[in-house]
Write a protein that binds this DNA or RNA. Structure first.
Lengths: 201, 201
DNA sequence: AGTGTTATGTAACAGCGTTGCGTTACAGTT
DNA sequence: AACTGTAACGCAACGCTGTTACATAACACT
């Protein structure tokens, strides 16, 4: 009983998420008002509070969506080639994701928007993204391309590096595109080289 | 002529900045309301708009203050020892600054607060901090510790790495303190090793 | 004293996230 | 067919924010 839903919940939820994603990409985080997002899909603020708990819930859903997209990019990276080349390809996929939607990247790895910090449950759901990196590092270690070390330590190093590079690039601190290309390449190569086993010793 | 200032402008400006810094460190960015900061030093919101242009101006001043503090830490790092050891010491000074005031670090290198993005004039004023890193890298290149390369490219690499490490650590993604210590050390050492000249070639 | 000029706090305005309340629209009952 | 209970929905208000217009206050000078 009760009044029937005039719009399907899942459809409306997706519509809100898509609209919010468009607004975020086009105008930045300050465009993500509850009234604005709701109006964009022809509903009212109430829908946001019914479908997500509150505005932070909407941001959390966008956060998780972003990691799903990143994981999809990672999944398209081959895992059967040269282990080190695969690892570099993961880094470039990460860069492509950041450049494809800079504001979304800020939402995922910075915290440009108040009132939202991912909790433990969120971090558990995005662990798969980190696992992909970890497995790629482990393959390099197993293949003897990296000296004997805890793959988690190397993964932490590389994950910090790509995040730092992406942050600098999105801030415009890596120079023009050609210069940024070179610095990404040099930095990733140097980082990998730093883990190569000693030639003698 | 005109009404005399009941408080010295420079004193009041410093008091506002200090109060804002205390609030930011203690309660995070959401505590930085104009009313709150003004009340903390016994004045009114008007003072913020007289002494800084607006709230973004207050944040900009805190931003520049943060870089002044970072530059001070850098200045205490010796520049006459082993070039590579000096470079690592710079990295650890950067880490110490981030850990000393995490929210301030976010203000400087993330963008946790809407309505403030550093403009070109701001970036020019903080260029000295980056120059310190650049000089340390150049000393390593000149000493033959790093293979022949553009010091700016190596500096970009290292700057991205320390920023990434600091971000991960402040997010708690680097594990407990002992683990974070190890990962900072391993990552900085591997990054430097990656720039060492080829033994033969 | 009176006036001009400047410093300062108060109060209002528009916007935000959020929520209570009235309205709408159907299912089941009489 | 009329009624009622329940669920969905939107409007409007609340408290907060940054910002600004305005009234007030306090001096120097005539």
């Amino acid at each position: 009983m009760g009044r029937p839903r005039t719009r399907d919940w899942d459809d409306l939820r997706r519509a809100l998420l898509d609209a919010a994603g468009r607004l975020l990409a086009a105008e930045g985080p300050q465009a993500l008002g509850t009234r604005r997002v709701a109006h964009e899909v022809g509903t009212s603020t109430t829908a946001v509070y019914n479908l997500f708990e509150d505005k932070a819930g909407l941001l959390r859903a966008m956060f998780l969506d972003g990691f799903a997209a990143l994981e999809e990019r990672f999944a398209r990276v081959p895992v059967d080639g040269d282990p080190e080349a695969d690892l570099l390809a993961l880094g470039h996929a990460y860069r492509a994701a950041a450049r494809a939607d800079p504001h979304r990247y800020d939402l995922m790895f910075g915290r440009p928007i108040a009132d939202f910090r991912p909790d433990e449950a969120d971090l558990a759901r995005i662990g798969g993204t980190y696992d992909t990196l970890l497995r790629a590092v482990a393959r390099c270690v197993d293949a003897g391309r990296f000296g004997p070390a805890d793959p988690a330590d190397i993964a932490a190093h590389l994950s910090a590096l790509v995040h730092g590079l992406a942050s600098l690039e999105l801030r415009g601190a890596l120079g023009d595109e050609e210069c940024a290309d070179r610095r990404w390449r040099l930095a990733l190569e140097a980082a990998c080289r730093g883990h190569h086993p000693e030639p003698a010793g």
